[in-house]
Write a protein that binds this DNA or RNA. Sequence first.
DNA 1: ATAAACTATGTAACTGGTTACGCAAAAATA
DNA 2: TATTTTTGCGTAACCAGTTACATAGTTTAT
Lengths: 162, 162
Amino acid sequence: MEDDFIKTLDYAGFTARIKRLSDGLIYDARKLYEYLDIGIEPNWHLIFLLLKKEKQLTVTEIAQQLGFTHPAIIKIIRKMKELGYAQSHVDPEDSRKQLIQLTQKGLDELPDFEEKWKKISLAVQEMVDPGLMQKLNELEQMLSEQSLYERCLTKIEGNECN
Amino acid sequence: MEDDFIKTLDYAGFTARIKRLSDGLIYDARKLYEYLDIGIEPNWHLIFLLLKKEKQLTVTEIAQQLGFTHPAIIKIIRKMKELGYAQSHVDPEDSRKQLIQLTQKGLDELPDFEEKWKKISLAVQEMVDPGLMQKLNELEQMLSEQSLYERCLTKIEGNECN
DNA sequence: ATAAACTATGTAACTGGTTACGCAAAAATA
DNA sequence: TATTTTTGCGTAACCAGTTACATAGTTTAT
């Protein structure tokens, strides 16, 4: 990677670089979970934290909060149930809804997980400049105001001639 | 997403935010390819540009340059061949190697693609602060010096007591 | 020259997500 | 109250990538 081709593309390679970064971080997270003997999938992390905070949530609520589709959440929750970390019951007020919670086992193991997650996030913190976090905030803000798709459309339709 | 849960996690949510950003950009790219009627897959973009620059490359070389595994490249190239955009022949000097090139059709359509890619990358440029690009460079640099995995290991082994 | 080690490609099976669809319950409307 | 629309969950089929493995060709070492 001496002369990184993607980097030479500048803004045209932005999406690819973000994807490469994301894939790399996820790859390392997997290895760290292995090494630290965290007995759950890395992508359960946020669900644990979310359910710790909110006590119980529906499938759709979790999906919205984390930015996944609901089938993705259903699959994750199913696995968490199989390993005894999650449970659910029908909402008595609306029988369409499944109220999902951590089990006692999940709550019991949380402190251990959190201690290990803390170590990882400290390493992230030492590596990631606060200025980058700020810039990331700004980009997310921009995107929430208008998606990249919309930006391109207005740009293209704005000057139809070229 | 008024109160974005992931954002509240600060550095503990960094990986998840990068993934969410990556997925969102890819999603929008797909829609833009549709809208702009770019008749190829978004992830062929870099391969087109790479083969334009290097004329011919092996599977492994492409994989290394783009940071994919070689089976991923094989699949992409197979599809590009099916649509007539790529071709390959055995390297006469080393019969294990497949030398991959753009076809004439690929080269012919490139200018049109590039014009459309230009529009997208301009919209990206208007959205992405140069400071973010700089911070991204620095993070990639940090990670290439020592992966997140290694950083955690040295951190943990460094002070074994806690 | 032979054997051992390595490299390049290819394939199979899996994974973590998606879209598209169906169904039942609830909410809105007539 | 009856009907239409919307919402929530679930499943099936798919997709882009991965890991693990096989095989054949090349290089290195003996």
